[in-house]
Write a protein that binds this DNA or RNA. Structure first.
Lengths: 130, 130
DNA sequence: TTGCATCTACGAATCTTTTCGTATACCTTT
DNA sequence: AAAGGTATACGAAAAGATTCGTAGATGCAA
């Protein structure tokens, strides 16, 4: 069950599929161009998505002429893998220092902070019960 | 003051310089080969560090025949920039959800958890004083 | 001093990722 | 049925990152 990890460009496309659900190449391409200054050609997006298909990162419904692509790699799994890599490469393996820096940016909403507090409480309880 | 961001390979070298301080190419190369199965040629490391010099990521003392390189991009700044990019690309911009997942991995020490709790407390106080 | 080890510089091969041009097929509208 | 718009497939260029071979300089040891 080892799934190849997405490249940077593939990740951008996965974001769209994750948030919008199954989409056509056209739809994805327009989303990409909407949120960025740089114009990305249609066939560029197409090619990338075809590559992702061959890697198994996405699936494709080609029962209609205009194919519909869906993310095959679940968001959670991708985030988990990439996070692990990122912690190792950039924070020398320390998740704690990453968290401190992430929170330090001060762009976290009160709701999220509350959720984090609760998770910490839970982790501390588990620890004391070992 | 825009400093070019390091590539993946450059980041590995920066990790060494950050943790060991100013080092020769030989020293860096040996550290890289020590902690990895893959053998990396000496001139490969050399070339990479020369590129990093031209990008300004490192500085170099060439007053002796064997040059000594030092990280020019501070660890904190690099982590901050890369974290921002990572949050955007992988967590759709939500630092909170990154934190939740990072903590969820359960590899955070009690000391770090305590530090995080304290930071949150501080952030909440600041918020209520606005 | 002669030779060996080690250093830097640098061009270029290789690999990966991204980008796009072009050919071709299909649908829709007229 | 012809034309125009939009699709996919695919080769290959372009861009970026990594790797290494080789040449030439310098220091050191016998």
């Amino acid at each position: 069950m080892t799934m190849m990890q997405p490249t940077e460009g593939e990740l951008v496309i996965l974001q769209v599929l994750w948030s919008d659900g199954p989409s056509t190449v056209r739809a994805v391409n327009e989303r990409l161009n909407a949120e960025s200054e740089r114009e990305i050609g249609y066939t560029t997006t197409l090619k990338l998505m075809q590559l992702m298909l061959s890697k198994g990162l996405v699936s494709r419904d080609d029962s209609t002429r205009t194919h519909v692509y869906a993310a095959e790699l679940p968001r959670e799994k991708a985030q988990q893998n990439l996070l692990q890599r990122f912690v190792d490469s950039t924070f020398g393996g320390s998740a704690g220092s990453l968290v401190l820096r992430a929170l330090g940016e001060g762009q976290t909403s009160p709701e999220e902070l509350a959720a984090i507090k609760q998770l910490i409480k839970q982790l501390e309880n588990e620890a004391s019960n070992d």
